[in-house]
Design a protein around this nucleic acid. Structure first.
Lengths: 253, 253
DNA sequence: GACATCTATTTTGAATTCAAACGCGAGGCG
DNA sequence: CGCCTCGCGTTTGAATTCAAAATAGATGTC
């Protein structure tokens, strides 16, 4: 349980230090900047989004800023309460479960498509990263391990050659990135070696171009990550999720 | 060939008939209304989105309308060209392929989750719909068939109990709905009976709660739909998609 | 007669403005 | 003493305004 779990703390009280004087406001510049600002955790969970302050920070008036907020709300990063402004959307354990499952579905899809479309070079690239990651695993180098891990998943995503998948993935990824449950693999050796074994299977299936199989492995891989992450987050938050399986959801309105 | 393929025709010349005087503009009302307006095909592919006219139609000023346009652009329904306004985003065959694959991934995920979480009643509901659909198939009742088909897929989605999955699905679904390649099943008996057989497998796997298997079937089901749709769309458009496999996509920026 | 250039009008993007809703605090009441 | 109500400043949501960019039209040239 390292630092970096602050769910409600001082983060928000930071005076929004005036960064660069804001570039000439290229079309999507503001949106991206604002999204990064939020994803990077500069605002605490549930905190009000200070419209005024952000206008100054980004050097724009409220009109374009509110446009960006609307987009971020549609992406699920913030909540927009009528007449009560925007707040950072806090993720409940239930939300996290959902996000991991969706992520698992997207990873599975990426794996399947990658098996159909990856070039030999791309597969070789993943293989190289895999062994590099294995090295980090042996040395218990968590940082290097994570870097390779992410590169592998991004490599598979890229090999899937599907722009819409990539952008959907990026959206989900952004929401998860806000959390940073830097899975405590170094504490939990079993999980780490299990993850490593799963990665062996991933590489194997990719090399055999066994799409359905790879998809299945990737989904389960994410499931296991989810379990580890929730285990951690629940241990930390000790926040019951009673409402969880309550609402059957009528889906697509 | 039936009607309803108009890709470029008179649709746009419609004078934007002033509909209802626009409700009291509940928070997301405008956005939803505008999205439906576009999804329903009231504007032709590539057509300019007439800001001014829509303001009148919905009874709002340009500010909230532009906010809505930004959101729709982020959803991929329209393109927003700097200083040149919004246009309806036309889907190339390449886009359609991507959409179908993503849809397949989402359906697969829904199926997998449904196997974990569906109640017996929900499975029974899908079973009922399945046999009703089979009846329509025997009678060659395309309309009834489609209705049941959609209900089955929505039923599985609902049983997956994942709000984020549902909303992602809805987003993709909306983009596809604009196309309406009312798959010419009545022309293509082979495809129709193949689809019916696939649905037998879907029901079977769901009843056995065989998640991975159901996911696989659903993905392939969508793949086959994709092939049929593209076959149709390409036959109609005769539009080459040369750029297709060109751009490897660096994914997640 | 076709093409290029310059001007007027329209459209876009963003700031400003304005009314309504909210939230906080003081004062009044039970 | 605690709770409720009223009023004031602040914040929000949306219309209006304004400058810059683009489009269309007119004019001149080759």
């Amino acid at each position: 349980m390292s630092a970096r779990i602050d769910t409600d703390m001082d983060v928000k009280s930071r005076p929004l230090a005036a960064a660069e004087p804001a570039a000439p406001s290229l079309h999507g510049e503001l949106l991206t900047g604002l999204r990064n600002f939020i994803v990077d955790g500069n605002l605490a969970d549930g905190a009000r989004v200070p419209e005024r302050a952000l206008c100054e920070k980004f050097g724009v008036s409220r009109t374009p800023l509110r446009e960006a907020l609307k987009v971020l709300a549609s992406e699920g990063l913030i909540d927009l309460l009528p007449n009560r402004g925007a707040r950072i959307r806090p993720l409940t354990p239930h939300d996290i479960r959902e996000l991991f499952d969706v992520m698992g579905g997207l990873e599975a899809l990426a794996g399947r498509l990658a098996c159909e479309r990856a070039t030999e070079a791309e597969i070789a690239g993943v293989e190289r990263l895999h062994y590099e990651m294995y090295g980090h695993y042996l040395k218990r180098d968590l940082k290097g391990y994570f870097r390779c891990n992410m590169a592998i998943h991004l490599g598979i995503l890229a090999a899937a050659r599907n722009v819409m998948l990539s952008s959907t993935y990026e959206g989900v990824s952004a929401r998860m990135r806000r959390q940073r449950y830097a899975a405590n693999l170094d504490q939990d050796r079993d999980r780490w070696s299990q993850a490593m074994r799963e990665h062996e299977e991933i590489l194997d299936a990719l090399q055999r171009r066994a799409g359905a199989e790879l998809g299945d492995i990737l989904f389960r891989h994410l499931r296991n990550k989810q379990i580890a992450a929730l285990d951690l987050s629940e241990r930390v938050l000790a926040e019951s999720d009673a409402v969880d399986d309550a609402e059957p959801e009528t889906a697509a309105g």
